[in-house]
Amino acid sequence: MKFRLILSFLLLASSFTAFSQERQKGNNSAVAEKGLIKVSVLYPFAEGKTFNMEYYETKHMPMVAGFLGSNLVKYTIEKGLASGVPNQPLPYMAIGIFYIKSLAEYQAAIAPNIAAIRADFANYTNVAPVILVSEVVR
């Protein structure tokens, strides 16, 4: 009986420790991103517009990431599912986000490659993206 009680306590303590470590990792991630520049590339949804997520994920985003080099911290790709307001149309089909250290370095890397980046749009979408550059506050 004591053995089961001790074993249950150890399992509970182990689970709590793992949970605490995961929460700390999440908090550390937010702290690590603070101050970074975030380049969000938003693809608005509209009837008749298309978006090839597989191409975007496997070809386009890695190509752009390659141009950014060591200035790039990470990038994410999001697929739009629904509006935040019930019964409203989807605002964006997809969003690509680059987290970078320096806006000046980003602009210097993108400028000579902008024609190639824009030419690649036709391979995955017929939508003109909206680009927002911001600073991660938290």
Score class of each variant (00 low, 15 high):
residue 72 L to A: 03
residue 55 Y to W: 12
residue 73 V to G: 00
residue 46 A to I: 04
residue 125 T to A: 03
residue 132 L to R: 13
residue 85 V to R: 14
residue 132 L to P: 06
residue 64 V to F: 01
residue 76 T to M: 03
residue 35 G to E: 02
residue 112 P to S: 09
residue 40 S to W: 05
residue 83 S to F: 06
residue 73 V to E: 00
residue 126 N to H: 10
residue 135 E to I: 11
residue 82 A to V: 01
residue 81 L to N: 10
residue 10 L to S: 13
residue 28 N to V: 04
residue 14 S to C: 12
residue 65 A to S: 14
residue 13 A to N: 00
residue 138 R to I: 06
residue 58 T to P: 02
residue 127 V to L: 01
residue 73 V to F: 02
residue 99 Y to C: 01
residue 5 L to Y: 10
residue 107 Q to C: 06
residue 9 F to V: 03
residue 12 L to D: 01
residue 108 A to M: 03
residue 43 Y to H: 08
residue 102 S to F: 03
residue 27 N to P: 02
residue 72 L to D: 00
residue 65 A to E: 09
residue 26 G to F: 09
residue 123 N to H: 13
residue 60 H to A: 05
residue 7 L to V: 14
residue 34 K to M: 06
residue 52 N to A: 13
residue 5 L to V: 10
residue 24 Q to R: 13
residue 37 I to S: 01
residue 64 V to I: 15
residue 96 G to L: 07
residue 70 S to W: 05
residue 80 G to Y: 12
residue 23 R to M: 09
residue 113 N to C: 02
residue 136 V to T: 05
residue 106 Y to I: 05
residue 84 G to Y: 06
residue 43 Y to L: 04
residue 26 G to C: 06
residue 73 V to L: 03
residue 10 L to P: 13
residue 111 A to L: 10
residue 11 L to T: 03
residue 8 S to N: 07
residue 46 A to N: 14
residue 124 Y to N: 10
residue 42 L to D: 08
residue 64 V to C: 02
residue 42 L to R: 15
residue 20 S to G: 04
residue 51 F to M: 07
residue 91 P to H: 08
residue 49 K to I: 06
residue 40 S to K: 07
residue 66 G to V: 08
residue 49 K to P: 04
residue 5 L to T: 13
residue 49 K to N: 11
residue 56 Y to H: 09
residue 56 Y to P: 01
residue 50 T to G: 02
